[in-house]
Design a binder for these strands. Structure first.
Lengths: 268, 268
DNA sequence: GCAAAAGTGTTCCTGTTACACCCATGG
DNA sequence: CCATGGGTGTAACAGGAACACTTTTGC
């Protein structure tokens, strides 16, 4: 049962491998030094980031790829997504949703066909593992250069990238990321997914910043407030923010009335 | 490589099988004899139907299941969906979209794990194969009774069922059908999928009947007309319907401006 | 002309957008 | 009291729902 040793001519006799890959989004300020004087057209210092893993074996050895791995015999698809994401990046998302199954015959470029079931996840800042062993880079070249040797001498094949400037990805993972981005933005417009970027309590301004970062456009604070409150998914905590030099805002929490499994849509 | 012979204790050493199943919807008048005097609350004689296949092997031998089959080595996922649907039911849908990948470890109840990638399809009346060899039944009991022996003496393991009254299905196929129904109705509300139930040209009244059948509620003809025309997806053919005893309606055709791959959404 | 459905006009209502304005707090 | 963002009010606008009404055909 050593399928890996088979050559290409045996592809037709091998069963497809099944793997799970995950696009895990987090919100972060852009890399230090970049954009020191934000213009009016780009008012927010927050962008989408995601972790990638450098492949250590063929095919696509050395290229960046989505975190993931093969399905194991007793694990559900979503469990495989969670496990492989946690093992490689340390992240443990509360929000996880199946994205799509990719199964074109030639997508693996190896001796065995590969069917990948992609998931996407949203991470709050405290669902991201501590910085030990994981680095953050702003552009592919920097990642290529610095990957491997960390400051403390450890090796790491994981790095976070801005979703705007990804390196060349293995397999069709660039398509997967683009689709996940599309789905995140689409769902942000009609559902409350974006709330999952925030922690237990947050102000309406923080929530609005999330929406503006994901959708890439500004919202009127007054109207945003009304629509958010009208959605019925916000509960006042009774607390207010502290440490600001102006009127402190109320802190809200997300009340997930219907805790049914999260859902999907697409349009056009 | 004879995986089928392995026993249950070897599950953990076997790679998962990958299969594709398809929920293929069509619109049909309800079975003859049923509801001879439609009431006001149920004004339309049109309901959703879908083909099922009786399993001839374990697991779930003898139970009804969605048409489908294993992925073959050089076929895309959607090609497998089309091929297995055509082979068993004769139907060739123009509209086909991936639904979801189902992969719980225990969903197959056999010696080998089964990952099923489900598709859903919409069929116009002329995309459904001729009636030869395929029967239509209105309730599970009738199907169970009549399945097998057809009028002309042929055997058939395929039958069409009303989506409202399905028999017990193999695997988790009942979940798959319910999810496909949910997706069809959801997408009907914000996209033009429902147009795919109709042929080359159709009247606005016919289109409205499709919407009413899928969504299960009536629409105001005047408002429906305006919204349909405002969508920009209708093109006048210049022809009108014939054979009616009143003012004939204009015939329209569906103009698919952006012929990009169809998309998905879900809500809440 | 009559019945029936096609097709048009109009009003009401609701939710969104734009923007003026007041409120509460730290310094 | 001033600056700053939190929070409220409101008028204009757009799209949908309800329904009255006119038009066109076969008989």
């Amino acid at each position: 049962m050593d399928y890996a040793a088979a050559n290409v001519s045996e592809r037709r006799f091998l069963p497809p491998r099944v793997a799970v890959s995950t696009v895990a989004f987090a919100l972060r300020p852009p890399a230090e030094g970049a954009n020191p004087h934000p213009s009016e057209s780009e008012p927010h210092n927050i962008t989408l980031w995601l972790p990638l893993v450098r492949r250590t074996r063929d095919p696509f050895r050395g290229q960046w790829a989505l975190p993931g791995g093969p399905l194991t015999w007793n694990e559900s698809l979503s469990d495989t997504s969670r496990r492989t994401l946690a093992d490689t990046t340390g992240a443990s998302p509360r929000y996880l949703e199946q994205l799509y199954a990719f199964g074109e015959p030639e997508r693996s470029a190896s001796d065995q066909r590969l069917v990948t079931i992609a998931y996407w996840a949203l991470l709050t800042n405290d669902e991201i593992a501590g910085d030990t062993g994981v680095q953050t880079v702003s552009e592919p070249a920097a990642a290529q250069r610095s990957s491997g040797q960390l400051g403390n001498g450890q090796l790491s094949n994981v790095a976070w990238f801005s979703a705007d400037s990804l390196p060349d990805l293995a397999f069709d993972h660039a398509d997967i990321v683009n689709y996940a981005l599309w789905r995140l933005r689409n769902k942000t417009e009609y559902s409350t997914v974006a709330y999952r970027f925030l922690g237990e309590s947050f102000t309406l301004a923080q929530l609005r910043v999330v929406y503006e970062a994901v959708l890439g456009k500004q919202s009127d604070p007054a109207n945003f407030r009304r629509q958010a409150l009208a959605s019925g998914h916000l509960r006042e905590t009774g607390r207010v923010e502290t440490g600001v030099g102006y009127r402190p805002a109320k802190l809200y929490s997300f009340s997930d009335v219907d805790h049914a499994a999260s859902d999907t849509r697409r349009s056009s």
